[in-house]
Structure formats: structure tokens, C-alpha cells
Design a binder for these strands. Structure first.
Lengths: 237, 237
DNA sequence: TGAATAGTGTCTGTGAGACAATATTAT
DNA sequence: ATAATATTGTCTCACAGACACTATTCA
């Protein structure tokens, strides 16, 4: 029987742009750590794009959900149990994979700093730097790479993911997936500002987000300045 | 060689939730027509879901872009040349198609009323009615069907599409894809209100959208009331 | 004490929403 | 004249953003 199911049809893979916040150690006992936005990349060890850096992901099994596929790929080298994932876009360009027609169901992922440190090989997290011309750079303690060092259409996927993250953070509770259970309002503000690259007055910021958080009775301490009240995320109404 | 490309892999299809605005003829020479939101459905003539109503779409060819696939499917019975399309979501449930694992790249489509009338068989456009319990009904001059009369997961796709349309209309120029080149501000407001199901004061509405439109020197006439100035969409800055 | 951060109070301008009033057409 | 729609003006309240001020900790 000449069914559609006998025909050659596109392959499907997943790709995940997973972000986390990394806080650098401050140089003085007084200062707070600076927050940087990082993304998870791995170095390919096979053709095509052998040696290039790529987003984690893989071919989708016939009985597998994309989220599970991504978690499976991410957990290969570590023991990730908490990673928020949201479908981003399905990239369909005819030539995005030189081997065959491969659609990529791309996801946006967010992970807390604690979770991100479970990865054995720390070189996989890169600080994301967007320069004035709109081009990306990726840096960490050991390496500095550019957009052109990425394989496939992954620099484009990252661009779309970052746009989504930036707009999503404005009107949802997505930030909290980048933070620990308890956090200070300054930490929260730092994450906002790191992602949006816009500054805010502390007083205004606090008013804006006050309905999203709950005050605890605990505080931070042991720094050369006033301790900060710890907050938790308010449960979704 | 035991490559991933030798394995059985998921099939890929497209589905499009295409909306248009239909204006009913008014009963009095004084009154303006009422606007209703309509969606394009077709009746399946093969298994599975034979006889059920479905969103247009089809299996994606290996060298085909999803948008082209959708236009090809929609244009089969007519000569559609203007339909705005945006990728909505990729539906991946394991059992969404009883025949095999079939992912659906779903699109949100918007079409002007004039364009929508090019379809020969007028029964394919259904007014979308969302009742108090959140269930859909679909009605036109000849037929009235419910969510349960739809095949596959298409009622879910429609739900997601309508949510997207409702939020998208708030912060983009998507409305204009539902309107003719020239329109009155009341027409524009009617489309907004039909989609959001919220009322607005005319004065406030006009202020809100004034930066999105350009006044022409033409007006409507021949009605038993004051003529309305015609406007066009302001080009994207 | 002082450097650094935490937290609160107040002013102003903008914009959304409510309300009121006027303008224009065909029958 | 009247029914119906078109269009503009004004008031108020909420809120975003700017600015100023006070509070608290450790070396």
C-alpha cells in the first residue's frame, strides 16, 4: 500500500538553551558577588561540526517526549534533577543539518546555580556576552569563543532563547527558577538586571515585585554591611 | 553502519488554526454589522477520525518548510494568496495520532474577511464560541458542532491558538491581518473586543491605538448615522 | 568610624479607565 | 426629528520612575 508512512520523512532532534546564574566571588568582605548569565554548551566529538561547541540535545526516539530527551542528554554527565524547561521554537530550515533534513524542537531551560554546579566538568558553562553589534561571545575561566565557533544554527537558537528569556522574565515567575529557595531582594534584582541589562532603583524594584515574594523570618549575615531579609517565591495563585 | 539515521523515527505533520473575522449583515440600515471570530475546519474523509472535523494541515515533505506545507493544504480547494502565519507550538504527545508517532508543528494563522470568502465551500468556516465552562462550540449557517466532534488533539491546539491570539493582539499589530487595507476605528475596536471579549470605551480605545494607525482622507457613507473616517495600518518602524 | 548594602518615604508625570458632551448622517 | 454611530474633552486614580533619606552590619 502506498501510504505516507512509507515515504522518507524528516528527522527530529531536540536542542536546549539552558541558562543559569553564576555569582563571582567578591574581592572584598564588604562587597556582594556579581551575577552573570551562563549557558550550557558542549564540544562535539563527531562529524558534522566536529570540535565545535553546541547546545545539548539529540535525536528524538520514536517513543520519547522532547523534555525527557533533553533531560536524558543533559544528565549524561551529571545528575540533574531540577531543570525548568519550556518549548521555545521548532527550527526547520532545510539545510540546518548537512547530513539530512533534521528539525530541531528547541527548548529554553533555566537552572539554579546550585544545580548547575553538579556538572563534573565545569568548562561547559559559558558567560553570555552580547556585544554592541548584536554578536555573541561566550567566556569562562578557561575559554573564550565566538558565535562562529558554534555548530549548526545554534547561535540563532541562542539568540531566540535569550529574547524569550528577556521578555518572559517581565511578566512571569520564571526568575525564581534561576534562584535558590531563599533569596534576598538584591539577589533577585541582580538576576533581573543581568538578564534585561537595565537598571532599576531599589525602591521601585521592590514595589514592582512585592506581590511575587513572601518574606521569611531569616536573614543573611556575616558581611560588612546590613543583613538582608530572605524571601521565598510566592506560590502561583 | 549503525547510524541514528537507520532507526525508526517520528513522523512530522503540520496543523494550522486559521482565524478570520466574519461580519454578519445588520438588520437595520442604521446598525453596524456584528463581528464574529471564525476558524477554518475541514471534514476528514479517511481513517482515523473519519467524518470528524479537523484543522487543515498535512504530513511534512522531506524538502518542505512547514509554512509552505500549510499554504499548500489550505490552497487545495481555493486560491489563497494572503494568510499570515506564525509558529504556535509543536505538539508531541505519544498517542496524538493512533497510526504512529506523529509530531504536529502547529501554526496560528490570520486571514482577512475578503480573503476568507475565496473559499468555495462556505461551510468550512465556523464561529468559535467559548462557553462558561471553557468548552468550545463551533457554529455556522449550516452546522453546530462541539469540541468532541474534532479529531486528534485539535481542540487542544485551538485552545492554545486562541490564547496566543488573545495575548498577541495586546502587544503586536496582529489585528491588522484580520482587517481590510482601510478600516474604521470602530471596526478595529470590534475586532479587538471580539477576540478579547472585553469592552472598552471608544474614547479610551482610540487613544490606546492611535499610534498604530494612519488617518486617510476617505470616509464610509450611506448609513443612517455619521460617516466614519477610514484608517490604514501604520508601517512597522 | 566608615564602607557597603538594606530598606522606606515622597514627589511628579504618564497613562488607563470612567464619564460627559458634541457632531453627523439617512430616513 | 430621531436613531444610531463618530469623535473629542476632562477628571481621577494607580503606578512607574526619580530622588532623598534612614538603618544596620563588620573590620
Amino acid at each position: 500500500m502506498n501510504s505516507i508512512f512509507d515515504h522518507e520523512h524528516p528527522f527530529v532532534c531536540t536542542d536546549a538553551a539552558v541558562f543559569t546564574i553564576r555569582t563571582d566571588e567578591p574581592d572584598s568582605y564588604r562587597k556582594l558577588p556579581e551575577a552573570r548569565l551562563r549557558i550550557l554548551l558542549y564540544k562535539r566529538t563527531a562529524e558534522p561540526y566536529n570540535g565545535r561547541w553546541c547546545l545539548p540535545g539529540g535525536f528524538l526516539n520514536i517513543d520519547e517526549m522532547p523534555e525527557d530527551n533533553i533531560l536524558r542528554m543533559i544528565s549524561k554527565k551529571s545528575h540533574i534533577n531540577r531543570c525548568w524547561l519550556e518549548q521555545l521554537y521548532t527550527f526547520c530550515d532545510l539545510k540546518r543539518d548537512p547530513r539530512a533534513r533534521v528539525l530541531s524542537i528547541a527548548y529554553l531551560g533555566l537552572m539554579s546555580e546550585a544545580e548547575s554546579k553538579k556538572f563534573d566538568d565545569k568548562t561547559v558553562w559559558f558567560t553570555v556576552i552580547l556585544d554592541d553589534t548584536g554578536k555573541f561571545r561566550f567566556e569562562n575561566e578557561d575559554l573564550a569563543i565566538t558565535e562562529n565557533d558554534l555548530g549548526f544554527d545554534h547561535s540563532n537558537i541562542i539568540k531566540v532563547a535569550l529574547e524569550r528569556l528577556r521578555s518572559k522574565i517581565q511578566y512571569t515567575s520564571a526568575v525564581f527558577d534561576l534562584l535558590p529557595e531563599e533569596f534576598t531582594l538584591t539577589q533577585l534584582q541582580n538576576v533581573y538586571e543581568t538578564i534585561t541589562e537595565k537598571r532599576d532603583q531599589a525602591a521601585n524594584f521592590r514595589r514592582k515585585i512585592k506581590d511575587l515574594v513572601i518574606e521569611t523570618d531569616r536573614s543573611t549575615g556575616d558581611k560588612g554591611h546590613r543583613p538582608a531579609r530572605l524571601y521565598t517565591k510566592k506560590g502561583d495563585v
